[in-house]
Simulated scan of single mutants.
Amino acid sequence: MSKENRDFLEMAFHSIQCFGDDGRLDAAELGRILAIAERNGVTDDNERRVLGNIIARIRPEEIDAAMKAQLDAIARKFGIAVPASA
């Protein structure tokens, strides 16, 4: 019996901590969340769904150059829609 990947739960929990800290997510925090999704070499549908939900909470005015680069890479790799920067 295979063990179900529960990394998406850890991603969601980590994002709550990040947003709860200062109300926003920076590129380093997003990178740590992405690392959770990628650590086993496969990013499944649940991880992509959670990643998309996390990204949807990012406001355009919060996107700096580092965040834009991170978001662009995620959009290319996973096909997740990202917010436009302000």
Rank of each mutant, 00 (worst) to 15 (best):
M1V: 06
S2V: 11
K3V: 12
K3M: 10
E4Q: 12
E4P: 12
N5T: 06
R6D: 11
D7T: 09
D7P: 02
F8H: 15
L9C: 03
E10F: 07
E10G: 04
E10H: 07
E10T: 10
M11S: 08
A12W: 13
F13A: 14
F13E: 15
F13R: 14
F13V: 05
H14R: 15
H14P: 00
H14E: 15
I16F: 13
I16H: 05
Q17Y: 07
C18W: 00
C18T: 01
F19R: 00
G20F: 07
G20H: 04
G20A: 05
D21H: 11
D22V: 04
D22W: 00
D22F: 00
G23N: 10
R24M: 02
R24N: 10
L25I: 13
D26M: 10
D26P: 05
A27I: 07
A27F: 11
A28W: 05
A28Y: 09
L30P: 03
L30Y: 02
L30C: 05
L30F: 06
L30M: 07
R32H: 12
I33W: 02
I33E: 05
L34Q: 14
A35F: 09
I36V: 12
I36T: 08
I36K: 06
A37P: 03
A37R: 09
E38H: 00
R39D: 11
R39W: 02
R39Q: 13
N40K: 10
N40M: 03
N40V: 03
G41C: 10
G41L: 07
G41S: 09
V42W: 12
N46L: 13
E47I: 01
R48G: 06
R48T: 14
R49S: 08
R49M: 14
V50F: 06
V50Y: 13
V50M: 14
L51T: 04
G52Y: 08
N53G: 14
I55D: 04
A56G: 13
R57A: 14
I58W: 02
R59M: 04
R59E: 14
P60G: 09
E61H: 03
E61L: 05
E62S: 13
E62A: 12
D64M: 00
A65W: 05
A65G: 05
A65L: 12
M67Y: 06
A69C: 03
A69M: 03
Q70P: 00
L71V: 07
L71I: 09
L71D: 05
A75T: 13
R76N: 15
R76Y: 11
K77L: 15
K77V: 11
F78H: 15
G79K: 10
I80E: 09
A81V: 11
A81R: 15
A81I: 01
A81E: 15
V82H: 11
V82E: 09
V82P: 04
A84D: 15
A84Y: 03
A86K: 08
A86D: 07
